[in-house]
Amino acid sequence: MNNDVRQTLREAVKRMPAFPQSMQHILELSGDINCSQKDQVEVIKKDPVFTLKILRLVNSPYFGLSREITSINHASVYLGQNTLKNVALGLAAVDAIPRSAADKLDMGAFWLHSLAVATCAAMLGRKLGVSRDEVSTFFAVGLLHDLGKVVFALYMPEQYESVIRAAAEPGNILHECEREILGATHAEAGGLLAEKWNLPEEMRDTIAAHHSIGEGGSFMLTDCLFAANQISKSLSFGSAWDFHVEPLPSGVQNRLGMTISELIKDMPTLGKEVENARIFVRLGEFR
């Protein structure tokens, strides 16, 4: 990406809304090793709408609890500090997307693809034995991985329409069309947006690199996100405007121990779990 393209992209990202103050404060606290779970809860309590959203999510089929949780304190105990942060992060990110995005992209299809990638990445994380708290990071990264497309659609609309038309041609790959027409990819735009929102470094780097498998480095989160993206496209969950399903690089396949088709067979509950995860978008969009 040359300097002119980077500057244009940064200007577009600047126009995206900021996170609510409560979420900004939570992210600041999460970077402080002395931050306690109680500190996080006290921030959330000051935002009644945010509190209500989190409680509705915790009591939804997504978590499948046997009894109702009626306070954010109890929700915090059940979820744990990292999961509470990532639940709040997912809701805040959906809320931050301007409603005008729906005039440029089919946001129903966009969110369905994002939810499928998030759910699948979390399932792959569990398959590899990561903790429940860490699984929430896999879900959050999957949910946010394509937000660079929204930046392009909102603030470079004519160019991005050209990208989507080009990507619809057989054999073309979306991020390659973006590079050719715009000079940058949605992954790079998403990384800059994650930087604007002050997301944790691991999440920023994974979003920015989710189409760069094989270009150096191999991390569990990136591998699971890449595989989840291809699985979701294979099963046509929503639309990524990218119809090319890439085979798993050998390193990713070795880590997961299966091909894409084998992984799909090994996740028979994926569709149901994606349906349960729709609550993130419904609650996130409620204002």
Rank of each mutant, 00 (worst) to 15 (best):
Q7L: 15
R10A: 10
A12Q: 12
V13S: 00
V13Y: 05
K14H: 10
F19S: 03
Q21S: 08
Q21T: 04
S22C: 13
S22T: 09
S22V: 14
H25G: 11
I33Y: 06
N34W: 15
C35F: 13
Q37L: 10
D39F: 04
Q40T: 09
V41W: 10
V41Y: 02
V41D: 12
I44Y: 04
F50I: 12
T51G: 14
L52C: 08
K53C: 15
R56P: 08
R56E: 12
V58M: 08
P61W: 06
P61Y: 08
S66K: 09
R67G: 12
E68P: 03
N73H: 10
N73E: 08
S76M: 05
Q81R: 10
V87M: 05
G90P: 02
L91Y: 06
A92V: 02
V94F: 07
A101Q: 06
A102T: 15
G108D: 14
F110P: 10
W111T: 05
W111Q: 01
H113D: 13
S114C: 14
S114F: 14
V117L: 03
A118N: 00
T119S: 05
A121C: 01
A122M: 01
V130H: 04
R132K: 13
D133E: 12
E134K: 11
T137L: 07
F138Y: 05
F138E: 00
F139Q: 01
A140M: 06
A140D: 00
L143Q: 00
G148D: 07
K149L: 04
V150E: 02
Y155N: 07
Q159L: 03
Y160P: 04
E161N: 02
E161G: 10
I164A: 03
A166W: 03
A167H: 07
N172S: 15
N172W: 10
I173L: 15
E176Q: 05
E178N: 02
R179T: 07
R179N: 14
E180Y: 06
I181D: 06
L182Q: 10
G183E: 08
G183P: 11
A184V: 06
T185E: 08
G190V: 00
G190T: 02
G191A: 12
L192G: 03
L192R: 04
L192V: 08
E195C: 13
K196I: 08
W197Y: 14
L199D: 07
L199C: 08
E202T: 02
M203S: 12
H210I: 01
H211C: 09
G216C: 13
G216S: 06
S218V: 11
T222V: 15
D223P: 01
C224L: 00
C224I: 03
L225W: 00
F226V: 00
A228K: 02
S232A: 06
S234F: 12
S236Y: 15
G238N: 09
D242A: 06
F243R: 15
H244E: 14
E246L: 12
P247W: 09
G251H: 15
V252R: 07
M258Q: 05
M258A: 14
T259F: 08
S261A: 14
L263G: 02
K265D: 12
K265I: 12
K265A: 07
M267C: 07
T269M: 05
G271Q: 11
G271M: 14
G271K: 13
N276E: 01
N276P: 02
I279P: 05
I279Y: 04
I279S: 11
I279W: 03
F280V: 01
L283E: 03
L283A: 08
F286E: 10
R287Q: 11
R287L: 14
